[in-house]
């Protein structure tokens, strides 16, 4: 087996594991990990995302992104003044997929000695995601995202958290931005950012939002956090999968394209916000959760799902 040209780390001249295309440099495992930790710390401190004394809930699916998030926040907790970390895991009920990721989430919490709360779609809504989606698989992400967000909020409240962190990386953010523009979803584009404490919600922060998905994956591998997990069976139905492919091609041909797009989206968003300010939040008439109309998204989808049978309502979240 040959080992001809092996690139060397630009910092210390040892064997490199990563080519940083944007900055045209190589990094070894140690310098790459240091770079990732510095980036996350910079995102948090520059945007003042974590007030000292925070009791933080971390949305943990068991996949690489949320696992890296929990691992890094645990590592940085003293420097950030985080008093407590609690993992919140939602079991959507996806056969052949979720069991393995749930197991990975449980093992990580056990290894890091971090308490966790787990809530399932089945216990909360009386059905698994698989059952909800029969005949409407193409809407998997709408259903899953809406209900999961609600349960994460409930889990964070149950944990007494003052803040909730999610593992969205730069790729996720750019994909969401592109989909908002494709759908001309002005409501989402102009919505106040949740890290500013949008209305009655627990403020949500995204400490990995400055990192490419590939960087997060590599950090997970180098830190022993990467487990080969199955892909969500609903991915082929998702618009996001197509958008992701297009954006990844752009990133391959123009390194840094995603970062630039996200910066430009921020300016676009500000401009749109001035032209179309977001509506103030009221309360859902069915469950009392925050809503921009008479009915929150959760109750709307639950009604849709039970069309023809007795209409269910979600349990009150806010009293």
């Amino acid at each position: 087996m040959s080992h001809g040209h092996s690139p060397r780390c630009s910092e210390c001249d040892t064997t490199a594991v990563f080519l940083d295309r944007e900055h045209a440099r190589h990094l070894c495992a140690a310098h790459f990990s240091e770079y990732i930790e510095d980036q996350v710390l910079a995102t948090i401190t520059e945007q003042e995302l974590v007030p000292p004394g925070s009791r933080m809930a971390v949305a943990l699916s068991g996949g690489k992104d949320s696992s890296v998030l929990l691992f890094l926040l645990n590592r940085l907790r003293d420097r950030l003044g985080i008093t407590d970390l609690v993992a919140v895991t939602v079991d959507e009920g996806i056969a052949g997929y979720r069991d393995e990721t749930m197991e990975a989430a449980g093992s990580l919490c056990q290894g890091l000695r971090i308490p966790s709360i787990c809530i399932s779609f089945n216990e909360r809504f009386g059905e698994t995601l698989d059952q909800m989606l029969v005949g409407r698989e193409h809407r998997a992400c709408s259903y899953c995202g809406t209900f999961r967000k609600r349960l994460l909020e409930e889990g964070a409240r149950r944990a007494g958290a003052s803040l909730m962190a999610t593992g969205h990386c730069l790729d996720d953010e750019v994909q969401a931005a592109a989909m908002n523009v494709l759908r001309a979803d002005i409501g989402r584009i102009t919505r106040e950012l949740p890290d500013k404490g949008r209305g009655p919600f627990i403020p949500r922060i995204k400490p990995l939002s400055g990192l490419m998905g590939r960087e997060v994956a590599l950090y997970a591998m180098l830190s022993g956090l990467y487990t080969e997990l199955p892909e969500c069976p609903y991915t082929p139905h998702a618009l996001r999968a197509e958008v992701r492919g297009i954006l990844n091609h752009l990133e391959r041909d123009r390194p840094g394209a995603m970062r630039l797009m996200m910066q430009n989206y921020g300016s676009f968003r500000e401009c749109m916000r001035r032209k179309a300010p977001s509506l103030p939040l009221g309360r859902c008439l069915q469950c009392g959760a925050p809503a921009s109309g008479e009915s929150c998204r959760v109750c709307t989808l639950l009604r849709e799902g039970s069309a023809g049978s007795e209409v269910r309502e979600s349990q009150p979240l806010h009293r």
Partner: peptide
């Protein structure tokens, strides 16, 4: 061993 994209392969 994880390798960067510009590593030469045989």
């Amino acid at each position: 061993a994880i390798i960067p994209d510009d590593t030469w392969l045989y």
